[in-house]
Amino acid sequence: MFRQLTRICRVGIVSEPTPCGRGPALDLLGPRLEDAVSRIFHGSLAIRQVDAGSCNGCELEIQALSNPYYAIERYGIHFVASPRHADLLLVTGPVSRHMQTALRLAYEAMPEPKRVLAVGHCGADGGEFGVSYASCGAVHRVIPVDGVIRGCPPSPAVLVQGILELIDPALLQVPAPDPDSDPPASREGL
C-alpha cells in the first residue's frame, strides 16, 4: 500500500492541461466539451460504443480516452454498458453482415433523442474493407448517422474533437482564446 501511495504522489496528475503530441490541443477542446456537455446534456453524456466489425484499432484508441492523460470522464462523458442508457452511439466499422442486425437492435434500443457517430475510415466509408459478401461497408448503410470521425484509427484527441463537433459544432468554431483575456478554465485541480 505504501508503494502505491508513493507512486501516486510521485506521478501526480498527468491529465493533460497542455497540448499533447500532434493533433488538436486538449487544453482548448476539453473545457469547450465540458461546457457543451453541461449545457446540452445537463452535465452527463452517456456513450455506448459498438464494434460492428472493426479491426480493433479504433477500440484501442477509444479505450485510451479513459486513460489518465485524456480522462474523458472529467468532461462529463462516460461509457455505458447498455444502449438503453446512451445518448450517443459510437460505432466502429465496417459493419459486417454478421453484426448488421445486432447494430440495428442496439440503435433501436436507444431512447430518443439519440445521436450516432461513425468512427474511423471504415465506419465512415467502409475503408480498406468496403462492401463485400461479408461487409455492409459504412455505418450509414445500416443505421442513420449524424457525424463521422475519420482516421485509421483516429487518435484520442481527434475523437474528443469529433464528439465536440457533433454535439455543438458552433463551439468548435470559437477562435482560440486571446492570451490577454481570461485563460480557459484550469483543469489542474480536477
Binding site: 466489425g53 465496417p94 459486417s96 459478401y133 461479408a134
Partner: peptide, 8 residues
C-alpha cells in the same frame, strides 16, 4: 461476428 471477407 467480425468476419468481413479479408481473404476474398
Amino acid at each position: 461476428y467480425a468476419h468481413k471477407g479479408i481473404e476474398k
